[in-house]
Amino acid sequence: MFSTLAEMFQYTFLVRAVVVGVLVSLCAALLGVSLVLKRYSMIGDGLSHVGFGSLAIATAMNAAPLAVAVPVVVLAAFLLLRLSENSKIKGDAAIALISTSALAIGVAVISLTTGMNTDVCNYMFGSILAMSKADVALSLILGSSVLVLFALFYHRIFAVTFDENFAKATGIKTGLYNMLIALLTAVTIVLGMRMMGAMLISALVIFPALTSMRVMKKFKSVTICSAVVSVVCFFCGVVLSYLTNMPTGASVVIFNLAVFLGFWAAAKLLPSMKERKTAL
């Protein structure tokens, strides 16, 4: 086990990938709590498909992938937020339209230019080899900004997530915070997308929050637990991916699923957990 780790970390590209991945997993888990509770999980999924489309176009134009995908996905995030806030035009259906269209455009662009090759498979399901040096630098900067902003706005994000009307009535600019959450989510998804794959990145947002909500009963403990679960699963997933050549996204999601089932069983089987007087 330790010799495997030692062997892995001899490769600097792997070290870089793991550092970026840990940062992205952390961001995704923190934002995920709010997104899941606000019933915005679909936004994460929609954004990753838009991300896939923009990566495909960036590749076709020979442009830097992140430089194209970040602004496009941020714009899409604001659009999706507007759609889901306005329930009258069936937010979820509109999100599904946008995400499938983006996917179709991405696939069309790829098949007209490079054709379906292993690169495409990597976009869809993730690869640890996807990060270039410049990507890593940008990811570190953006990822740390997401963490810092989340920490600074934590209490207001809680207030807006728990009861948006009350927050608004007591002077919190809820529209601004919803946009902040959408913006941070967009950045996180683009950063994690190539390692985790466009099809699987939204799992990184949804799984840790749902897993911790099985047993934790305080917002703070759910947030902390999600962060820990997410980072641990990512790390195990990367090692598995290195050992078996499995796409990184798939192995990380499999670990997330296993931990989710474990927590779910624990909450069901241990009645003492339910009857505890004080919440964690």
Partner: peptide
């Protein structure tokens, strides 16, 4: 302004302690 709504659409499964909810009244101040 302090406000007590007639119905709060807090979801059934929202994890939050009493203390966290009460303190959130201070978030906008």
């Amino acid at each position: 302004i302090g406000y007590l709504p007639q119905q709060t659409q807090v979801q059934k499964d929202f994890p939050a302690s009493v203390e966290e909810v009460v303190l959130s009244g201070r978030a906008g101040r």
